[in-house]
């Protein structure tokens, strides 16, 4: 019974002793401890994150799943230093998020492709390279390589508005990959796409993850997507945003699309659904 196995894994994870200093284990890419974030609004404070403990290890594919307002995007934004935590501690690559951002430690893929319409696909992918002052030759070579990686070779001279939504999002992934950050933060990147395109991109993303050996943090609404992609699934619940369950996946790293019909897959999906339900009843 896979349920049994994952639960064991979970227990080991939760009882894992935290190191006293912020520099966690050397393999730890993201390490959050009692992380909290409270927004001050006119209607009083909103607790977007509360007491979040999490370790993301090198090479992990971690999915964050939960209903709207559970703080999964906020958590990603804290890692990226796009928001500042108001409580607890967090380290990214052993640094503060701000230091990590300045060291260009991560690539961020947003909900929308956010490609600049005045730049061709090629130049959009080259944008971070220009800002980080890579040489022209290096830029050209990297753009070529990353466009090949997301199967967009031959579309470099098109403008974003001449491409379909799925291709645009692939271009934005290429842009996040172009400067070789080891950490990829993805905030519902396929949320606006239809199911068929999404399946296709999920399979591509897994392949990409296998070839580039990056650490990926992936926010999603979809249980099958989370289970299909992840080595670790973080289930979150809202008001205040917190982690209710962390599930280590027992699926092999090599995952064809039809793995989603196996009992093992369904058992993990069931576990995720249970976790989401528990978080919800707690609120009521």
């Amino acid at each position: 019974m896979p349920d049994h196995i994952t639960r064991t894994n979970l227990r080991t994870h939760r009882t894992h002793g935290w190191p006293h200093r912020m520099t966690a284990s050397p393999a730890s890419v993201v390490s959050a401890r009692k992380l909290g974030l409270t927004f001050q609004t006119n209607d009083g404070p909103v607790h977007a994150l509360s007491d979040v403990d999490l370790e993301v290890e090198k090479g992990d594919f971690v999915s964050f799943i939960g209903p709207s307002g559970c703080g999964k995007t906020t958590f990603l934004r804290v890692i990226a230093d796009l928001e500042k935590n108001t409580g607890g501690e967090i380290s990214v690559n052993g640094m503060t998020p701000e230091e990590a951002r300045k060291a260009r430690a991560y690539g961020y893929v947003f909900q929308a492709p956010a490609l600049y319409p005045w730049r061709t696909i090629e130049n959009n992918v080259a944008l971070p390279l220009e800002i980080m002052e890579y040489s022209k030759a290096e830029q050209k070579q990297r753009v070529q390589r990353t466009l090949d990686l997301v199967n967009l070779a031959g579309f470099g001279n098109k403008y974003p508005w001449q491409l379909s939504g799925g291709m645009q999002q692939r271009a934005s992934i290429a842009r996040a990959l172009a400067f070789d950050a080891d950490l990829l933060l993805m905030d519902e990147p396929f949320g606006a796409l239809d199911e068929i395109v999404r399946d296709h991109l999920n399979a591509q993303l897994l392949k990409l993850w296998a070839t580039t050996e990056k650490t990926i943090c992936f926010v999603t609404h979809s249980i099958p997507e989370a289970v299909y992609l992840s080595t670790k699934i973080v289930v979150m619940s809202p008001r205040p945003g917190r982690v209710t369950d962390v599930i280590e996946s027992t699926l092999p790293r090599e995952r064809p699309l039809d793995i989603r019909e196996t009992p093992e897959f369904l058992a993990i999906a069931h576990r995720v659904r249970e976790g989401l339900r528990a978080g919800h009843s707690y609120e009521e």
């Binding site: 600049y116 971070p128 980080m132």
Partner: peptide
């Protein structure tokens, strides 16, 4: 705001953001 967050994620400076995003 997403476009500006993107520039921030690259640790882009004020003038770089101005020339590559905000002026266009």
């Amino acid at each position: 705001s997403i476009e500006r967050d993107l520039m921030r994620s690259y640790a882009s400076g004020y003038w770089q953001t101005l020339c590559k995003l905000r002026l266009p």
